[in-house]
């Protein structure tokens, strides 16, 4: 769990500290505070649990106990493109688990893990409420309905291509300067 924080993350921590002070020191703020942190930094590094405990005047283990209870909170950084595969009932009936497996196979990671390059992570989620479009996968913020195993490859490829294009663009800009 103890990973080195990137410089971006260290900057985010400062930001979090500032935001934290806007929350009143009330137990009821524990979950909103954790949500705020995760929005800032995408997961809950150990440093942040300590900050929260100090701010709210409770023990760290209390914070940890609450944070580990809820599905939403992560303790590892997710990928740049978090993939969520819906396994709600409708998606299950329409073979959502096969979609999940395909992502796992293509990315060579299991559900709950992040690729070593931190590009992708896979999570299973319980119903995102788009049941009429089952099976559903969400990449980043975009919902993809009527998924099929063959579509998995296409989606990943699209992201790869977009990334390459971005890099090329970047290089062009840099060399243009």
């Amino acid at each position: 769990m103890n990973q080195e924080l990137t410089t971006e993350e260290q900057a985010a921590l400062k930001n979090i500290a500032a935001k934290l002070s806007t929350f009143e020191r009330q137990r009821g703020n524990l979950i909103p505070v954790l949500q705020m942190i995760q929005e800032e930094i995408a997961y809950l590094p150990p440093e942040t649990l300590k900050m929260v405990a100090e701010h709210l005047g409770i023990f760290e283990c209390e914070v940890y106990g609450v944070a580990t209870f809820y599905n939403q909170f992560r303790f590892r950084p997710p990928g740049k493109h978090p993939i969520k595969v819906c396994l709600g009932t409708a998606c299950h009936v329409r073979a959502g688990d096969i979609i999940l497996e395909n992502f796992e196979r293509k990315l060579e990671i299991s559900e709950g893990e992040t690729t070593p390059d931190r590009e992708f992570s896979i999570e299973r989620v319980a119903c995102v409420g788009c049941c009429a479009m089952a099976p559903v996968a969400i990449i980043g913020e975009t919902v993809h309905g009527q998924m099929a195993p063959s579509k998995v490859e296409g989606l990943l490829m699209r992201i790869e291509i977009e990334k390459e294009m971005e890099e090329r663009e970047k290089q062009k800009n840099e060399s243009g300067r």
Binding site: T89, G129, C131
Partner: peptide
């Protein structure tokens, strides 16, 4: 609304 397969409340 947590039941997988239900989204009335959300709608």
């Amino acid at each position: 609304e947590g039941d997988p397969g239900a989204y009335m409340d959300r709608t």
